[in-house]
Design a binder for these strands. Structure first.
Lengths: 220, 220
DNA sequence: TAGATTGTTAATCGATTAACAATC
DNA sequence: TAGATTGTTAATCGATTAACAATC
């Protein structure tokens, strides 16, 4: 039981994981400007971070830099993508073809981010059997069986709040292991299921609070 | 210079701010079940948090509980809303009436979250002068002037990546003080402008990474 | 070689968790 | 009164930042 050495054992913190896509953003821009190497300092400046933090984050991807030169941009992009598993695509089902769901179905860029939405599901009969961005909308009853048969591992929930838990249950029954949840509700799931919340209100609350504080400070 | 006592001086951490909307979600549900008091323990259980953390967070809103009884739900909801400034509505402009922007324009619930989108702006002439959810879509050229004249303080950016910085600049020129940014780019803004990023890729990266780790663990 | 930059170990900071007295 | 729950002070934990040796 003495540490069966794996390529990369250290767990990445959630904070680091959330910064990695930001690095990719900067790196892609630099790459398009034909730049080949970048220092941690340059990245830090672009994003308003600390260069030590950038180096720590990048170290977690396993990519190493060269003293005096910095990091090879191509290698770094690939390393970060690999860490996020964005160099593979995982099949996903989306449930809830309302306006947000439809907008997500229209996103071409998810394939660059490891996500491949292969079907959508709906409650509402009038929407069923429509097609958005080449993705067919199926009746919700088929969700569990199809997820199971097609070995789909990711579920995206964009249904109203009162249906979200039920949809999550069906997903899990179908073997789905990770849920990207846009409904403003805390889903109850077994330990082996990963839930990532993408709820607008969380981010909006930070904004409205900070703005109020900032404007208050002015009238002092 | 010795502490001009204000109602509530302690700064709220960003972590706390992000949890506050989750408390509201639970509290509203309990309220609909006619429950009047709730303990920090019950809230913690519902959300998978620690009850001490819940008490600390709630303390930051200024609402106090009663030993043995817990917190009065109505009072708590109001206190949290006040902390987030969700008991006021701040006027906002949205720029970029693509699919995501249009979906956001359709959200009726932003008014419960302190946000009142009063106009949308677009580059694309074919979309200009359309109306979505009673909100008129105007040509982008009018953005700065109108923001200034109408004293709009919040800007929502849902344009493609290559236009986002320019739109942010126009917003700031028009006096906008807080930007809710959905474009996957780090905006450069003066210190007095608040930027809150709502970028899907950040949350998606956490999901795809964790799922990969989880599935890897299984085949060990 | 001198200088810039990496990568790591140590120090600091802030957030979470624990302990416990106060109180209804 | 006894017991449950709050609210606060102290302890722990983890993430950020600092210091610095290694290296190209």
């Amino acid at each position: 039981m003495e540490m069966v050495a794996e390529k990369q054992v250290k767990a990445l913190s959630e904070r680091t994981l959330r910064r990695l896509p930001r690095y990719i953003e900067i790196l892609k821009r630099l790459k398009s400007e034909k730049i080949e190497f970048v220092s941690s300092n340059m990245i830090a400046d672009e994003l308003g971070l600390d260069s030590i933090q950038v180096r720590k984050d990048l170290a977690a991807t396993g990519v190493t830099g060269k003293p005096k030169l910095g990091f090879a941009i191509d290698e770094l992009i690939n390393g970060i993508k690999h860490t996020l598993n964005w160099d593979n695509q995982t099949d996903a089902f989306l449930v809830g073809a309302g306006s947000l769901g439809s907008a997500l179905l229209g996103y071409k860029t998810f394939s660059d981010h490891g996500l491949n939405i292969i079907a959508a599901f709906e409650n509402e009969p009038s929407k069923v059997s429509g097609i958005i961005n080449n993705i067919t909308i199926l009746p919700i009853e088929k969700l569990s069986d199809m997820a199971f048969r097609m070995k789909v591992h990711i579920g995206v929930i964009t249904v109203p709040i009162d249906q979200a838990q039920h949809v999550a249950d069906m997903m899990i029954e179908g073997g789905i292991r990770a849920i990207w949840n846009f409904a403003p509700i805390h889903l109850k799931v077994p330990d082996f299921v990963i839930v990532e919340n993408a709820q607008l209100s969380h981010s909006l609350g930070v904004l409205t609070h900070k703005l109020a504080e900032s404007l208050k400070g002015e009238n002092k």
